[in-house]
Design a protein around this nucleic acid. Structure first.
Lengths: 186, 186
DNA sequence: GACTGCAGCTAATGACATTAGCTTTGCGGC
DNA sequence: GCCGCAAAGCTAATGTCATTAGCTGCAGTC
């Protein structure tokens, strides 16, 4: 194992820095290579291509969020779990707006896997409601949609009005909790 | 006015075709020029640059969706209006998955304007609940977040499980309606 | 019939990603 | 201590784009 200098993980870390500082559009191999003090083609020794690097970054972020969300939910159940999960999610996105935008739209394998972890966490949080597996899946999807939609719109600055976003988010949380409490179809 | 051939609108239309057929990543000036039977630099006579073209396309799509959603809501109120709105939204996204992905994240002026129209439609639909303006704004945001989040996740194929997505969407609709009916804070 | 302005063209530049093939360096075995 | 090898890095080359500059030719206008 010659020169230890770089590694796939190190490249991803530098890519993440780039995203944090300059946004996902600035994530180019040139930029990462510059940050690593290395010629661009050298990166190909660690990463198949730009698409893979994007996926790796995306997966890292998704796993990160899943970790934080999982920690937030620990030891809570039902309404409290949902509240904590949604708060953790929003906190992360506000803390790292560029990261959120770097999450891959098109689900590459690694990102998809991280997404599955996330799903598990949500399902675990919902277990305390005692709903059927199938109901829990539908509920988890709704929770995810709500949380994701809000995050996208907020980090993109798509909510124009001056009204407090905290309050809007509170309403969203209450809405989801109400839905979880009474998920029975008509 | 020499040769009428192209025009900004025509360019946007061709761009939209490109997006529909090959996805937003395929929206390049080369591609559009090829489709128009014209050299790439010629497009600059109609559009400032690629960024502007993206914004124009995005705004066109957003306006389209707002039109459809507005039509769907016409003559309905309260729960029925919300249900119709959400159904119209999802139908559009399923009919035009690539278009939805082409909506701009970063809100450029024209897209933002179209987004404002959309907001108005939602607010009109909520008026029948007789909530205060401020409550309506928060509610509209939640509705938008729910609808947007679901659309993104569904068109990206981020929902892996085999469970019926129609059913999940139903649950989402019910959740939002419940939230609109009882939006009073703690 | 000459004038003007717009639409389109070709040529050139510069940022990237990606590939090919060469060079260096450090480690394991002798 | 010395050798070979494989990983890690480098330079050079190619191709795709976006974008700019400057030229050309046609549509109507006077």
């Amino acid at each position: 194992m010659p020169r230890a200098a770089l590694s796939a993980d190190a490249v991803v870390a530098l890519a993440l820095e780039t995203v944090d500082q300059a946004g996902p559009a600035a994530l180019t191999l040139s930029a990462v290579a510059g940050r690593a003090g290395v010629a661009t083609p050298s990166l190909y020794k660690h990463v198949r291509n730009l698409a893979e690097l994007r996926d790796l970054v995306s997966a890292r972020i998704m796993n990160d969020m899943a970790d934080e969300a999982g920690r937030a939910v620990l030891g809570r159940s039902a309404d409290e779990a949902i509240r904590a999960f949604m708060k953790a999610w929003r906190d992360y996105t506000l803390r790292n707006p560029h990261r959120y935008a770097a999450l891959l739209q098109t689900p590459e394998p690694r990102t998809a896997e991280a997404g599955a972890r996330l799903l598990d966490i949500i399902r675990a949080a919902l277990r305390s409601y005692g709903m059927t597996d199938s109901a829990a899946i539908h509920m988890a999807r709704c929770l995810r949609a709500a949380v994701h939609g809000f995050a996208v719109l907020e980090t993109d600055g798509a909510f124009g009005l001056p009204e407090s976003l905290d309050e809007s988010h509170d309403l969203l949380v209450r809405m989801v909790i109400a839905g979880a409490g009474a998920p029975r179809p008509t």
